[in-house]
Protein backbone atom coordinates (compact mmCIF):
# COMPACT_ATOMS: atom_id res chain seq x y z
CA UNK A 1 0.00 0.00 0.00
CA UNK A 2 1.13 3.47 -0.70
CA UNK A 3 2.41 5.32 2.29
CA UNK A 4 0.37 8.44 2.84
CA UNK A 5 2.43 11.38 3.97
CA UNK A 6 1.89 12.31 7.56
CA UNK A 7 0.72 15.86 7.02
CA UNK A 8 -1.90 14.83 4.51
CA UNK A 9 -3.19 12.13 6.77
CA UNK A 10 -3.38 14.55 9.63
CA UNK A 11 -5.21 17.12 7.62
CA UNK A 12 -7.76 14.71 6.32
CA UNK A 13 -8.24 13.25 9.77
CA UNK A 14 -8.84 16.71 11.14
CA UNK A 15 -11.53 17.34 8.59
CA UNK A 16 -13.16 14.01 9.15
CA UNK A 17 -13.08 14.48 12.88
CA UNK A 18 -14.72 17.83 12.58
CA UNK A 19 -17.41 16.39 10.34
CA UNK A 20 -18.20 13.45 12.55
CA UNK A 21 -17.77 15.27 15.77
CA UNK A 22 -15.33 12.81 17.20
CA UNK A 23 -11.86 13.45 18.56
CA UNK A 24 -9.18 13.78 15.98
CA UNK A 25 -6.87 11.27 17.57
CA UNK A 26 -9.51 8.59 17.25
CA UNK A 27 -10.01 9.24 13.57
CA UNK A 28 -6.31 9.33 12.99
CA UNK A 29 -5.91 5.99 14.66
CA UNK A 30 -8.72 4.56 12.55
CA UNK A 31 -7.11 5.83 9.42
CA UNK A 32 -3.84 4.27 10.32
CA UNK A 33 -5.65 1.03 10.83
CA UNK A 34 -4.91 0.86 14.51
CA UNK A 35 -8.56 0.86 15.46
CA UNK A 36 -11.71 -0.55 13.91
CA UNK A 37 -13.68 2.07 12.06
CA UNK A 38 -16.73 3.43 13.78
CA UNK A 39 -19.75 3.41 11.54
CA UNK A 40 -20.65 6.89 10.43
CA UNK A 41 -23.58 8.34 12.21
CA UNK A 42 -25.48 8.78 8.98
CA UNK A 43 -25.12 5.71 6.84
CA UNK A 44 -24.75 6.58 3.23
CA UNK A 45 -27.63 5.54 1.02
CA UNK A 46 -26.19 5.13 -2.41
CA UNK A 47 -29.31 5.20 -4.56
CA UNK A 48 -32.47 6.32 -2.96
CA UNK A 49 -35.61 4.98 -4.63
CA UNK A 50 -37.28 7.69 -6.62
CA UNK A 51 -40.46 8.46 -4.78
CA UNK A 52 -43.20 10.69 -6.01
CA UNK A 53 -44.12 11.56 -2.48
CA UNK A 54 -41.68 13.27 -0.26
CA UNK A 55 -40.24 10.43 1.78
CA UNK A 56 -40.10 10.62 5.47
CA UNK A 57 -37.06 12.62 6.09
CA UNK A 58 -34.21 10.32 6.92
CA UNK A 59 -33.12 10.83 10.43
CA UNK A 60 -29.97 12.61 9.63
CA UNK A 61 -30.94 14.89 6.80
CA UNK A 62 -31.42 18.35 8.06
CA UNK A 63 -33.46 21.07 6.54
CA UNK A 64 -31.96 23.84 4.54
CA UNK A 65 -29.24 22.03 2.70
CA UNK A 66 -31.26 19.06 1.62
CA UNK A 67 -33.25 21.08 -0.84
CA UNK A 68 -30.27 22.52 -2.50
CA UNK A 69 -28.60 19.23 -3.09
CA UNK A 70 -30.12 18.70 -6.52
CA UNK A 71 -27.72 21.17 -7.95
CA UNK A 72 -24.33 20.76 -6.49
CA UNK A 73 -22.87 23.97 -5.40
CA UNK A 74 -19.34 24.41 -6.64
CA UNK A 75 -16.87 24.28 -3.83
CA UNK A 76 -15.74 27.60 -2.72
CA UNK A 77 -12.10 27.97 -2.16
CA UNK A 78 -11.21 27.74 1.45
CA UNK A 79 -14.76 27.17 2.66
CA UNK A 80 -16.11 23.81 3.37
CA UNK A 81 -19.52 23.73 1.83
CA UNK A 82 -21.74 21.24 3.52
CA UNK A 83 -23.50 18.87 1.20
CA UNK A 84 -25.86 16.21 2.34
CA UNK A 85 -24.82 12.78 1.35
CA UNK A 86 -28.06 10.99 1.95
CA UNK A 87 -31.18 11.01 -0.22
CA UNK A 88 -30.80 13.61 -2.79
CA UNK A 89 -33.17 14.56 -5.64
CA UNK A 90 -36.23 12.87 -4.27
CA UNK A 91 -36.32 14.91 -1.15
CA UNK A 92 -35.88 18.17 -2.79
CA UNK A 93 -38.13 19.71 -5.36
CA UNK A 94 -41.65 18.73 -4.38
CA UNK A 95 -41.05 18.81 -0.71
CA UNK A 96 -43.26 21.15 1.22
CA UNK A 97 -41.41 23.77 3.05
CA UNK A 98 -39.99 21.85 5.93
CA UNK A 99 -38.15 24.81 7.06
CA UNK A 100 -38.86 28.38 7.78
CA UNK A 101 -36.32 29.26 5.13
CA UNK A 102 -38.64 29.76 2.19
CA UNK A 103 -35.91 29.79 -0.40
CA UNK A 104 -35.01 26.22 0.27
CA UNK A 105 -38.12 24.86 -1.36
CA UNK A 106 -37.63 26.60 -4.64
CA UNK A 107 -34.80 25.86 -6.98
CA UNK A 108 -31.81 27.49 -5.52
CA UNK A 109 -28.57 26.96 -7.37
CA UNK A 110 -26.46 27.53 -4.37
CA UNK A 111 -27.21 28.50 -0.81
CA UNK A 112 -26.78 32.17 -0.31
CA UNK A 113 -24.81 31.68 2.85
CA UNK A 114 -23.65 28.30 4.01
CA UNK A 115 -24.85 27.54 7.48
CA UNK A 116 -22.29 28.12 10.07
CA UNK A 117 -22.65 24.97 12.12
CA UNK A 118 -22.42 21.70 10.33
CA UNK A 119 -25.54 19.70 10.87
CA UNK A 120 -25.45 16.13 11.96
CA UNK A 121 -25.02 13.55 9.24
CA UNK A 122 -23.79 15.99 6.69
CA UNK A 123 -20.34 15.40 5.47
CA UNK A 124 -18.59 18.53 4.43
CA UNK A 125 -16.79 18.58 1.15
CA UNK A 126 -13.11 18.81 1.34
CA UNK A 127 -10.95 20.85 -0.86
CA UNK A 128 -8.71 18.48 -2.71
CA UNK A 129 -7.13 20.74 -5.20
CA UNK A 130 -7.74 24.00 -6.94
CA UNK A 131 -7.80 23.87 -10.72
CA UNK A 132 -7.64 27.31 -12.13
CA UNK A 133 -10.12 27.86 -14.91
CA UNK A 134 -7.94 28.81 -17.80
CA UNK A 135 -8.64 28.28 -21.46
CA UNK A 136 -6.25 26.47 -23.75
CA UNK A 137 -6.03 29.53 -25.92
CA UNK A 138 -5.22 32.84 -24.38
CA UNK A 139 -8.00 35.03 -25.57
CA UNK A 140 -7.35 38.66 -24.91
CA UNK A 141 -10.72 40.15 -25.50
CA UNK A 142 -9.91 43.77 -25.30
CA UNK A 143 -12.55 45.74 -27.13
CA UNK A 144 -11.21 47.25 -30.33
CA UNK A 145 -12.68 49.37 -33.02
CA UNK A 146 -13.86 46.91 -35.64
CA UNK A 147 -15.82 46.99 -38.85
CA UNK A 148 -17.55 44.27 -40.83
CA UNK A 149 -15.30 42.50 -43.29
CA UNK A 150 -18.20 42.49 -45.69
CA UNK A 151 -18.55 44.98 -47.26
CA UNK A 152 -15.75 47.23 -46.03
CA UNK A 153 -12.65 45.05 -46.47
CA UNK A 154 -13.99 42.86 -49.26
CA UNK A 155 -14.76 45.83 -51.44
CA UNK A 156 -11.28 47.27 -51.00
CA UNK A 157 -9.72 43.91 -51.79
CA UNK A 158 -11.92 43.32 -54.80
CA UNK A 159 -11.09 46.76 -56.14
CA UNK A 160 -7.37 46.15 -55.71
CA UNK A 161 -7.74 42.83 -57.48
CA UNK A 162 -9.54 44.39 -60.41
CA UNK A 163 -7.05 47.22 -60.70
CA UNK A 164 -4.09 44.84 -60.74
CA UNK A 165 -5.78 42.61 -63.30
CA UNK A 166 -6.50 45.59 -65.50
CA UNK A 167 -2.95 46.90 -65.22
CA UNK A 168 -1.53 43.48 -66.02
CA UNK A 169 -3.77 43.03 -69.05
CA UNK A 170 -2.84 46.45 -70.41
CA UNK A 171 0.83 45.69 -69.76
CA UNK A 172 0.55 42.33 -71.47
CA UNK A 173 -1.11 43.80 -74.53
CA UNK A 174 1.56 46.47 -74.88
CA UNK A 175 4.67 44.63 -73.82
CA UNK A 176 5.68 41.40 -75.46
CA UNK A 177 7.41 38.89 -73.18
CA UNK A 178 10.90 38.26 -74.50
CA UNK A 179 11.61 35.22 -76.59
CA UNK A 180 15.12 35.19 -78.02
CA UNK A 181 16.66 32.69 -80.39
CA UNK A 182 16.60 28.99 -79.66
CA UNK A 183 18.89 27.94 -76.83
CA UNK A 184 22.37 27.39 -78.20
CA UNK A 185 25.11 25.92 -76.05
CA UNK A 186 27.79 27.12 -78.42
CA UNK A 187 26.84 30.80 -78.40
CA UNK A 188 27.34 32.32 -74.98
CA UNK A 189 25.75 35.75 -74.94
CA UNK A 190 27.90 38.50 -73.58
CA UNK A 191 26.96 39.45 -70.91
CA UNK A 192 25.07 36.47 -69.48
CA UNK A 193 22.68 37.68 -66.87
CA UNK A 194 20.47 35.97 -64.30
CA UNK A 195 16.83 36.98 -63.78
CA UNK A 196 16.58 40.48 -62.34
CA UNK A 197 15.87 39.37 -58.77
CA UNK A 198 19.20 37.54 -58.76
CA UNK A 199 21.12 40.35 -60.43
CA UNK A 200 21.98 41.92 -57.10
CA UNK A 201 23.69 38.67 -56.21
CA UNK A 202 25.40 38.52 -59.57
CA UNK A 203 26.63 42.03 -58.94
CA UNK A 204 28.03 40.90 -55.59
CA UNK A 205 29.77 38.06 -57.39
CA UNK A 206 31.92 40.57 -59.22
CA UNK A 207 33.21 41.95 -55.93
CA UNK A 208 33.62 38.88 -53.74
CA UNK A 209 34.66 35.31 -53.93
CA UNK A 210 31.87 33.16 -55.39
CA UNK A 211 31.47 31.21 -52.18
CA UNK A 212 30.92 34.41 -50.24
CA UNK A 213 28.74 36.25 -52.69
CA UNK A 214 26.88 33.38 -54.25
CA UNK A 215 26.14 31.20 -51.28
CA UNK A 216 27.18 32.52 -47.90
CA UNK A 217 25.64 35.97 -48.20
CA UNK A 218 22.29 34.80 -49.63
CA UNK A 219 21.78 31.77 -47.39
CA UNK A 220 23.36 32.92 -44.15
CA UNK A 221 22.48 36.59 -44.09
CA UNK A 222 19.64 36.49 -46.57
CA UNK A 223 17.63 33.45 -45.65
CA UNK A 224 18.64 32.48 -42.12
CA UNK A 225 19.25 36.06 -41.07
CA UNK A 226 15.78 37.08 -42.18
CA UNK A 227 14.17 34.12 -40.46
CA UNK A 228 15.98 35.03 -37.26
CA UNK A 229 14.78 38.64 -37.21
CA UNK A 230 11.86 38.13 -34.79
CA UNK A 231 14.06 36.15 -32.43
CA UNK A 232 16.88 38.68 -32.45
CA UNK A 233 14.79 41.82 -32.26
CA UNK A 234 13.16 41.38 -28.86
CA UNK A 235 12.05 44.99 -28.61
CA UNK A 236 8.32 44.63 -27.97
CA UNK A 237 7.33 48.04 -29.31
CA UNK A 238 5.99 48.50 -32.80
CA UNK A 239 6.23 52.27 -32.70
CA UNK A 240 8.64 53.53 -35.35
CA UNK A 241 10.13 55.97 -32.87
CA UNK A 242 11.08 53.09 -30.57
CA UNK A 243 12.79 51.01 -33.20
CA UNK A 244 14.98 53.43 -35.07
CA UNK A 245 17.92 51.03 -35.21
CA UNK A 246 15.91 48.15 -36.66
CA UNK A 247 14.29 50.42 -39.22
CA UNK A 248 17.65 51.89 -40.15
CA UNK A 249 19.16 48.45 -40.69
CA UNK A 250 16.27 47.26 -42.82
CA UNK A 251 16.24 50.45 -44.86
CA UNK A 252 19.95 50.05 -45.48
CA UNK A 253 19.30 46.51 -46.66
CA UNK A 254 16.53 47.68 -48.99
CA UNK A 255 18.62 50.50 -50.38
CA UNK A 256 21.63 48.23 -50.79
CA UNK A 257 19.79 45.46 -52.58
CA UNK A 258 17.98 47.95 -54.80
CA UNK A 259 21.27 49.60 -55.72
CA UNK A 260 22.97 46.28 -56.47
CA UNK A 261 20.03 45.07 -58.54
CA UNK A 262 19.88 48.30 -60.54
CA UNK A 263 23.62 48.26 -61.08
CA UNK A 264 23.54 44.66 -62.26
CA UNK A 265 20.54 45.22 -64.48
CA UNK A 266 21.28 48.51 -66.15
CA UNK A 267 24.93 49.41 -65.62
CA UNK A 268 26.64 46.18 -66.59
CA UNK A 269 27.52 45.51 -70.20
CA UNK A 270 29.72 43.07 -72.12
CA UNK A 271 32.08 41.16 -69.88
CA UNK A 272 29.93 42.34 -66.98
CA UNK A 273 31.87 45.60 -67.12
CA UNK A 274 30.35 48.92 -66.18
CA UNK A 275 28.45 50.78 -68.88
CA UNK A 276 26.06 53.66 -68.94
CA UNK A 277 22.62 52.67 -70.20
CA UNK A 278 22.17 56.03 -71.90
CA UNK A 279 25.45 55.64 -73.76
CA UNK A 280 25.61 51.96 -74.64
CA UNK A 281 22.00 50.82 -74.33
CA UNK A 282 20.54 48.27 -71.97
CA UNK A 283 22.23 44.94 -71.67
CA UNK A 284 19.33 43.15 -70.14
CA UNK A 285 17.37 40.89 -72.44
CA UNK A 286 14.22 40.90 -70.34
CA UNK A 287 13.80 44.52 -71.38
CA UNK A 288 15.42 44.18 -74.78
CA UNK A 289 12.34 44.16 -76.97
CA UNK A 290 10.58 47.16 -75.61
CA UNK A 291 12.94 49.65 -74.07
CA UNK A 292 14.92 51.68 -76.53
CA UNK A 293 17.36 54.18 -75.22
CA UNK A 294 19.99 55.55 -77.59
Amino acid sequence: MVEIPEHLLRRSAEAKARALGVPMEQVLAEMRGEMPATPPSAPAVPTPPPLPEPPPPPPAVPEPVAAAVGQEAPPTVGVETPVAEAPTGSAAPVAPPITDNGAATTVTPRPVAPPQEIPEGVRPQRLLTVVKARAIQQVKATPTDKVNTWPHLMIAEFTALLVVTAVLIVLSVILQAPLLELANFNATPNPSKAPWYFLGLQELLSYYDPQVAGVIIPTITGLLGFMAIPYVDRNPSTKPSDRKFAIMLFTLFLAGSATLTLLGTLFRGPGFNFTYPWADGIWFDDLKDWVHFE
Binding site: N184, F185, P195
Partner: peptide
Protein backbone atom coordinates in the same frame (compact mmCIF):
# COMPACT_ATOMS: atom_id res chain seq x y z
CA UNK B 1 10.89 28.91 -73.03
CA UNK B 2 14.26 27.30 -73.86
CA UNK B 3 15.66 30.33 -75.60
CA UNK B 4 19.04 31.96 -75.19
CA UNK B 5 17.79 34.16 -72.34
CA UNK B 6 16.46 31.16 -70.43
CA UNK B 7 19.45 28.93 -71.02
CA UNK B 8 22.12 31.38 -69.93
CA UNK B 9 20.19 32.90 -67.05
CA UNK B 10 19.75 29.43 -65.61
CA UNK B 11 23.37 28.62 -66.33
CA UNK B 12 24.44 31.67 -64.34
CA UNK B 13 21.98 30.87 -61.55
Amino acid sequence: PWDQLALWAVTVG
